[in-house]
Design a protein around this nucleic acid. Structure first.
Lengths: 387, 387
DNA sequence: AAGACTTTGTTTAACCGATGTACAAAGTGA
DNA sequence: TCACTTTGTACATCGGTTAAACAAAGTCTT
């Protein structure tokens, strides 16, 4: 039993959070509109709005249009009250952005990772973030925190349990980065971060059930149901890439046979491309651009395999939207049709609406923006009640 | 914006719910213990406990042991303040129980379903439930509601969208039953109900991440993460049985190829048993009991296929516990080893703990008790805040 | 057996925040 | 200019929690 009990302070927290959320989502708004929208008494809204202004989280931006009476004073969320850092920690690169509290990018830094060990990555990360922080404008709250999306399995304590492609095991990334930077840090897997990014700032703004598929070296999925990120046990983000789609199929280094990512990942594609003498993904994309029938055939094949797994996801979660992100986005022209054909063939007929399939609208920035969102929402969750 | 705003009444609701929950979960408790446990002031607990007694939801059961001072008055949850009905609506049968508010069975009725149409099922259902209600002892709240677990896909409005084995489509089951019985009714799919039943009253009492697999004619799964039932979009319960485990495998009536339930369901098993001249599941179980090597081989084969799909679930959700329920429970002696071998072979090595595999400890009552739980929790959610 | 100490549960005054009402401020439109 | 609207603030009231005091009912030591 450690449920938070109720008292007046809780009531105030709840209502203040409601008012701030309304301003963030629907601003600019007058106090009267806020009262209508939230159902709170005018007087209550007045006091709470006053305090939010005091705290620099909202500001009066002048008078609005009258509809036959006194002109309303419009309130706007003060999105530059602080700044957040979002980091996408990939295998060969680290991409970091500085955003305001609405997730708008104000600065960006990218670094190549020349080695894979955690110490090195940590050094690069710290330097990158410090370079970003130096660019942050003066603000009441300063840097409110950092979020990291990492290509590996993360638990709810912020430890990277296993990152095969980085060759990491049990790295306490959250603690390490937090100590290095001195600001609150949140960690999650790159696919989950991408899902949040697309939901809040990208292709899924209107949808509430989204699956974000990160198709790179491996395959990861961030699954959002009812605007909530689905987290497995212990914060475990599903290793859906190691789901069997061919019971006696290709051997996977994980020990299993017929894993999806043996057929549908970037790595699978490159394995298939070796006989063609093409070693890099860029090369294959180029070959396809120039009309190479072998290259195009390979993309079709991978697209079909992607479709099989996506159909499984659709049959299991019935999402409105499947967003394909990471490297494989660049293959859109050649895989899109194959995916759509296979998915519509294999997904159950009694779904009321057909799931749409899109490619990440934030391009390579889904994960990094989602990561920034972790920091922003942690900042707001701290002194508030989560609605 | 329709978030509930905060005021004194909300605070009281929250605190009253906290106190009642504490009594339900840890009772008998004294007022002083409640104050310690919940963090609420002694005076507050006194008033709230008084009201709960007034409302017949708790009662004083006498004095407890003193530890050097005045003897405490012990409060106990009044589990007979009302009764709930749980229904498991299968393809060939309807099983219904009457439980007290702690989910203990006080009466039970089972009926065969001789036809499959919804009207007939509804008549049988109504008669069965009425027979149960007639057996309910007098109580302050009477019958607080009914929950139904049904072998089909249910949306969040209580409509059975599709129940292939019952041959139903778009049956507004909740409304129909509610009108027939005049009590609140909650509907969910049988696998979800089973998962709740096992979590609250069965094998999963201590676990918080459980997958309940209902293996009958088809395969359904109820997935519980962090004590919460995972619901797909629109209340959609995952049709995980139609997940592909063999890309170019057997055709499935659903239109897909290589669906899991084409290999691992009761129906798949019986299809395989036809050449042996065995037509019914009972027959096959009997044959295996008598040591028929063909029957045992078939069970092994199905067990292995079950293992493939379970490994997929384990890799995706990393549960603590997988509970196998419904018909296939009866095959435990012959499939258990095959399942465990395949799952441990195919599940990812970096899971910190190996998922345990058990067979439904509530036997055939998982779903029906889970269904009753829906009614009970709906009753408590009505006048309260959900914690 | 008496008195000191403990624990339980109730009572009461103080406090806090939301609400409704009255009201002041600042418009619009005929 | 005047009637009517709309916005935002001020203030008394209400309900609920809390802390502190207190009454009730024990135990334990001497």
């Amino acid at each position: 039993m450690n449920t938070t009990t109720g008292d007046q302070y809780l009531v105030k927290k709840i209502n203040k959070a409601i008012v701030l959320d309304a301003i963030r989502k629907h601003g600019p708004l007058s106090r009267a509109q806020l009262s209508d929208l939230t159902g709170l008494n005018k007087g209550t809204v007045s006091t709470l709005a006053g305090e939010l202004i005091e705290e620099k989280l909202a500001s009066e931006i002048g008078l609005g249009r009258s509809s036959g009476g006194r002109k309303p004073v419009m309130l706007l969320f003060n999105r530059t009250a602080g700044y957040a850092v979002g980091i996408d920690l990939g295998v060969r690169y680290a991409l970091a952005v500085l955003t305001d509290l609405e997730g708008r990018i104000v600065a960006e830094e990218q670094r190549e990772l020349e080695r894979r060990d955690a110490d090195y990555a940590l050094d690069v990360l710290a330097a990158t973030v410090k370079a970003l922080i130096a660019q942050a404008p003066e603000s009441p709250y300063g840097i409110v925190g950092a979020g990291i999306g990492v290509a590996g399995i993360v638990d709810d304590k912020g430890t990277v349990l296993f990152a095969p492609n980085l060759e990491w095991e049990n790295v306490e990334l959250q603690r390490l980065v937090q100590d290095a930077l001195g600001i609150p840090v949140a960690i999650d897997n790159e696919a989950n971060a991408g899902a949040l990014g697309e939901m809040y700032y990208g292709a899924g703004k209107e949808a509430s059930d989204i699956v974000y598929l990160s198709v790179g070296t491996g395959i990861g999925a961030g699954i959002v149901i009812g605007k909530h990120l689905m987290k497995g046990s212990g914060g475990f983000s599903g290793e859906i890439g190691h789901t069997t789609i061919e019971t006696n199929g290709k051997k996977c280094p994980c020990g299993n046979k017929g894993c999806w990512e043996q057929y549908a990942s970037e790595r699978a594609l490159m394995d298939m491309a070796k006989p063609l003498g093409i070693e890099r993904f860029d090369g294959l994309v180029e070959a396809a651009c120039q009309g190479s029938p072998e290259a195009i055939r390979l993309f079709h094949e991978v697209g079909e395999s992607l479709g099989v797994g996506i159909a499984n996801i659709v049959n299991t979660f019935n999402p409105e939207l499947v967003v394909i992100g990471n490297q494989m986005t660049r293959a859109e022209p050649w895989i899109r049709n194959a995916i759509e054909r296979v998915v519509s063939m294999r997904s159950l007929p009694f779904h009321r609406r057909q799931a749409q399939i899109r490619f990440a609208s934030l391009d390579t920035h889904s994960a990094v923006l989602g990561a920034a969102h972790y920091a922003i929402s942690a900042f707001f969750a701290k002194e508030r009640v989560t609605l």
